[in-house]
């Protein structure tokens, strides 16, 4: 589904991604783990063309998107929804308009269909009665869930989550992980989840990738990862066991 070939990205003199080679299979849930600042967000942003790589290739659904223009990326962004690390909601719009935004821009859809989809998406993230509120009036955790709904409502084939559960309570974290799992099982959505949470990665991931300083240091199924000899992976496992 998604293939990265020797992906390199630098900012100024700092090379953030130093040759990433990865293969994400269709329908899989892939967790990307790594310490802060290793370039996880940069990797996701390169995938949907928000940042452009310096060299290397990205293949999505058999298309090499590396040299795509902003217009060509439109169809990719319809197919690959991204949930950002920040809630990134638009302050001047109501929650309803926030969630409907992508439906209005990407598709031309009847208003009652939009309404139906927005309500459905909100109930997926366990929220209701906030449609007419503004982002400033709801809590951070709720904003993050609305942001998730805003992407899920587009029903993309690929979902890229940038730390969807960071800063949320354990109950909501659980329900979001279940949501990711059920989207992948029911709609055969491919998911890439950036996370720090090894415990939940072991629980729901089909494949785990560990990044360190812009490079893949280890990857494999949860079972294979448990046997890993790489020090960083062992640290993550240790942390997960202590929780």
């Amino acid at each position: 589904m998604i293939k990265y070939k020797n992906l390199v990205k630098s900012f100024g003199t700092r090379t953030v991604l130093k040759g990433i080679d990865l293969h994400i299979k269709a329908g899989e849930i892939v967790f990307i783990l790594g310490t802060s600042g290793t370039g996880k967000s940069v990797l996701l942003k390169n995938t949907v063309g928000l940042l452009r790589p310096d060299s290397g290739e990205i293949w999505i659904d058999g298309e090499n998107v590396s040299g795509y223009s902003e217009e060509q990326f439109l169809s990719i962004r319809k197919k690959c929804g991204m949930v950002f690390q920040h809630p990134a909601l638009f302050d001047s719009l109501t929650i309803y308009e926030n969630i409907a935004y992508g439906l209005r821009k990407h598709f031309s859809m009847a208003e009652n269909e939009i309404e139906r989809r927005v309500e459905q998406a909100l109930s997926l993230v366990n929220l209701d009665n906030i449609l007419s509120k503004r982002p400033g009036e709801i809590s951070y955790g709720m904003q993050k869930r609305v942001s998730l709904a805003r992407t899920v409502v587009l029903q993309p084939k690929v979902l890229l989550f940038d730390e969807p559960t960071t800063g949320l309570d354990p109950v909501t974290t659980n329900s979001i992980n279940t949501l990711i799992q059920s989207l992948s099982r029911k709609l055969n959505t491919t998911s890439m989840v950036v996370s720090h949470d090894m415990q939940c990665a072991l629980k729901i991931a089909d494949h785990i990738v560990v990044l360190d300083q812009g490079q893949v240091v280890d990857q494999g199924t949860p079972k294979q990862l448990l046997e890993s000899e790489v020090p960083l992976v062992r640290d993550f496992l240790e942390e997960a066991r202590n929780q």
């Binding site: 902003e70 690390q85 935004y101």
Partner: peptide, 14 residues
């Protein structure tokens, strides 16, 4: 910096 501009691009607008 709060990724709203990125979100606009991802949601199909300029």
């Amino acid at each position: 910096v709060t990724e709203q501009i990125d979100a606009i691009r991802c949601l199909g607008a300029d």
